[in-house]
Amino acid sequence: MNRFLHFSSAGARRAWLTPLLLILAWMPGLALAHPHGWIDIRVRLVVDEAGHLEALHQAWRMDPFYSLVLIEELSRTEGGLEAGLDRLGGEIRGNLAPFDFFTEVRMGDDELSLGDVTEYTVMERNGRVEFVFLLPLEEPQALGEQTLEYQVFDPTYYLEVVHEAEGDTPPEEALTVGGELSCTTRILPADPDPELVAEAAMLDINDEAEPGLGRHFAETGVVTCE
């Protein structure tokens, strides 16, 4: 699994540019400090007593080196690390909101509309920066009628987004379902076309991938409930 993907230059701020990078614009030089990286995610489906999916609770862990750079920089800002992490959370939320937090959710053949994130936090955990947030659906959906699938990906593929895993196998904790429903979960690995793999491999640090490239390298979470 290739986890060394390119960040874009801080100067190339096109409308579609990876919004996670833009959160660092107020910290001079930091956006260029680490030219590649990844995010490990955990997802928990929030289900009400009636068996309706209400939200996806997500935790994103930045890769260790990028986390180290962030922690060092934030520790030197006004208020220290804790205040810096609070500011960072607001910046991440604001910049990812127009992109639905890199998340697409489908029920059968229908893509579900997502709501506004109001609950979020950023913390340091075991030396890594973690962004935790609750992404609600615009309208709750009954589980058990159709298979639910989701993908989380950076459209430009400057950052690789994968479920937390030991080796190549995500643990059960990487995708869980709340509530009392009996559900089975799977995380399907990406299976990109070899031509797209070659295209991604040829991207230089200053190259700009076409929006949508990241979709082809995204894992898919699959949930089926009785």
Results as ranks from 00 to 15, higher is better:
Pro19Ser: 07
Leu74Val: 00
Leu17Met: 14
Val152Trp: 12
Leu175Lys: 09
Ile39His: 11
Val46Cys: 10
Leu74Ala: 05
Glu73His: 11
His34Ser: 09
Glu78Trp: 07
Gln58Pro: 02
Gly94Met: 08
Arg93Ile: 05
Leu143Val: 01
Val122Cys: 03
Leu85Pro: 02
Leu45Thr: 05
Gly221Ile: 08
Gly11Ser: 08
Ile23Lys: 02
Arg87Met: 00
His216Met: 09
Val197Tyr: 11
Phe7Arg: 09
Tyr66Lys: 06
Asp86Leu: 10
Pro171Ala: 05
Arg125Cys: 12
Glu164Gly: 13
Ala25His: 09
Met202Glu: 15
Arg61Pro: 06
Glu73Leu: 02
Arg13Asn: 12
Phe131Pro: 01
Leu20Lys: 00
Gly127Trp: 13
Pro155His: 08
Ala198Tyr: 09
Pro211Glu: 02
Gly79Cys: 09
Asp193Gly: 05
Gly144Leu: 05
Leu24Gln: 06
Asp207Leu: 04
Phe153Trp: 03
Gly29Cys: 06
Thr18Ala: 12
Glu54Cys: 13
Tyr158Asn: 14
Leu96Asn: 05
Glu145Thr: 14
Ala174Val: 00
Glu119Leu: 03
Gly94Arg: 07
Leu56Gly: 03
Phe217Gln: 04
Leu68Glu: 11
Glu72Cys: 12
Val162Lys: 10
Glu78Ile: 01
Ile71Glu: 14
Val152Pro: 03
Ser113Thr: 04
Gly94His: 11
Val223Glu: 06
Pro155Glu: 10
Leu5Glu: 09
Glu195Asp: 11
Gly127Gln: 02
Leu88His: 00
Glu49Trp: 02
Leu114Cys: 09
Pro35Gly: 08
Glu210Thr: 04
Leu20Gly: 07
Gly29Trp: 13
Gly214Glu: 10
Pro189Ala: 12
Arg87His: 08
Leu96Met: 10
Phe217Leu: 06
Pro28His: 09
Trp60Gln: 05
Arg76Glu: 13
Ala31Thr: 02
Gly221Met: 07
Gly115Val: 03
Thr147Asn: 04
Arg87Gly: 01
Ala15Pro: 01
Tyr150Pro: 00
Leu181Ala: 01
